[in-house]
Amino acid sequence: MSLAELDRMRTERDKAGRKIKVKQPDNKAALGFLAPWIIGLLGLTAGPLLYSLYLSFTKYNLLQPPEWTGLDNFERMLTDDRLHQALKVTFTYVIVSVPLQLLVALVLALALDRGMRFLPFYRSAFYLPSLLGGSVAIAVLWRLVFGADGLLNAILGWMGIESTQSWISNPDTALWTIVLLHVWTFGSPMVIFLAGLRQIPKSYYEAASTDGANAWWQFRHITLPLLTPIVFFNLVLAIINAFSNFTQAYVVSGGTGGPADSTLFYTLYLYQEGFGNFRMGYAAAMAWLLVLIIGAFTGLNFWLSKRWVHYDD
């Protein structure tokens, strides 16, 4: 039974102005089926979540009971230079890597949508980086590529550009290597784009080419508008993902956020404060600030979406 049907039932009852007997056994059965999920939600998500909200107002060193300190943690945020650095790094990362990643994903989805041979193979191959993106092997690979004796410098050398610098160890470039790593893991938005492209009726294109529309015009006036819900969906997900990125930053810098805090991602700093410096109360407060930031971005996204997202229904 769908939500819409339930809605209709309720309306009918209201119109009739009398109570319809609710079938109790059905509800009980439903509750029974829902129980594993409800227990999980309350015990594993809601409980810890509320506890972390409580912790954000305490001083808690992990080893002793938390101690209520009111707004101290939030006040400290105002003067915490490393937090400000972490915000700067994270915002830079989100603002640059999200559009780039979606662009790459869209371009590749368009290319794959042309129905080339070995499509399943290419699709899997392009998805592979998404699976590898957070693994420890990547830390090694990234060093081999962006280190002083790395692949990138070798390629630059062939092109006649002498470079002996280690991109990954230079505070000016280290963040960009992680941005690149993120763009490289374009697999899941690409697959979603592909699914979206398949949903656009072929008849639209047929009609357009009958009218003499070229490929660019078709893309601009058919594909793109009909794909906007998918773009929106991917955008919301990608922004959330990018804000909560932890693994990539952790493996590439070995957990330090170095060199010189240039890759100190918000979540990495949160982790350092919580588990390295035993300031779990402060870490919880930081987590809630991140929730607010992500919430604000997502809200803004939904609000803006009215202006550019085109729904078919």
Binding site: P48, L49, P229, F233, N241, T267, L290, G295, T298, F302
Partner: peptide
């Protein structure tokens, strides 16, 4: 490409993924 499905999915993802970081 229904508004409800996509918006709902995006919102649910926002809620779970965003908050998972704080438990």
């Amino acid at each position: 490409r229904s508004r409800r499905v996509l918006a709902g999915a995006a919102f649910a993802a926002a809620a779970t993924m965003g908050l998972a970081a704080c438990s």
